[in-house]
């Protein structure tokens, strides 16, 4: 009786769509098409750097700039070759009470965020993602260090997931 928030968590007459849908114990991967987004991003970034270095090396006859450009290009190619693996390593899992997120092959990271702690869920879309029909889902808690972004979800999935998570967060919110 004292306040509606806690009452809601005690008796969940929750308007959760597809009630048990949020519990699934499998790791889910993001769309494989997200590789394209990452590759385009690194090609543009590395391409500009390499071009600048090569032009500088050729124009001013500086051999170190030329070699630097070649080295940056080679590193970028290797990292692009690993891009499919890296995207496959991104996964999330909706457990009964929290969302677990993991990513990384060299630097692995795994984060568990209780649903009640999500302050807001954000959908962002870059130009390449939009062309591919993908969206990034960003979760914000009261801690800046949480930093969980789920990239490369199909837009429909992203919107459905967002709505589900917001509804879940609403029923389980407890203070700060």
């Amino acid at each position: 009786m004292p306040d509606p928030e806690h009452a809601a968590s005690d008796a969940p007459e929750a308007p959760v769509p597809e009630a048990p849908a949020h519990v699934d114990d499998d790791w889910r991967r993001v769309s494989p098409k997200h590789v394209v987004v990452e590759v385009v991003g690194s090609v543009i970034g590395a391409g500009i750097t390499v071009a600048v270095l090569l032009v500088v090396g050729w124009w001013f006859e500086l051999p170190w700039a030329t070699w630097g450009g070649i080295a940056v290009g080679a590193i970028a190619l290797v990292s692009i070759a690993f891009e499919p693996r890296r995207v496959r390593s991104i996964g999330y899992r909706r457990r009964a009470d929290d969302l677990v997120f993991r990513r990384g092959i060299m630097f692995q990271r795994q984060v568990a965020v209780p649903y009640g702690r999500m302050q807001l869920v954000d959908i962002t879309r870059g130009p390449v993602s939009r062309a591919l029909g993908l969206a990034d889902l960003k979760f914000v808690t009261a801690a800046a260090a949480t930093a969980v972004t789920l990239p490369g979800l199909p837009l429909d999935d992203a919107e459905r997931l967002r709505d589900e998570l917001v509804a879940l967060a609403e029923t389980r919110r407890a203070g700060l």
């Binding site: 060299m106 630097f107 795994q110 984060v111 568990a112 702690r117 801690a143 407890a174 700060l176």
Partner: peptide, 16 residues
């Protein structure tokens, strides 16, 4: 833990 926001484990190449 009642006020924890999230928990993370991480490992770079050396730790792995």
């Amino acid at each position: 833990l009642a006020r924890m926001q999230s928990v993370a484990v991480a490992a770079g190449p050396v730790r792995r």
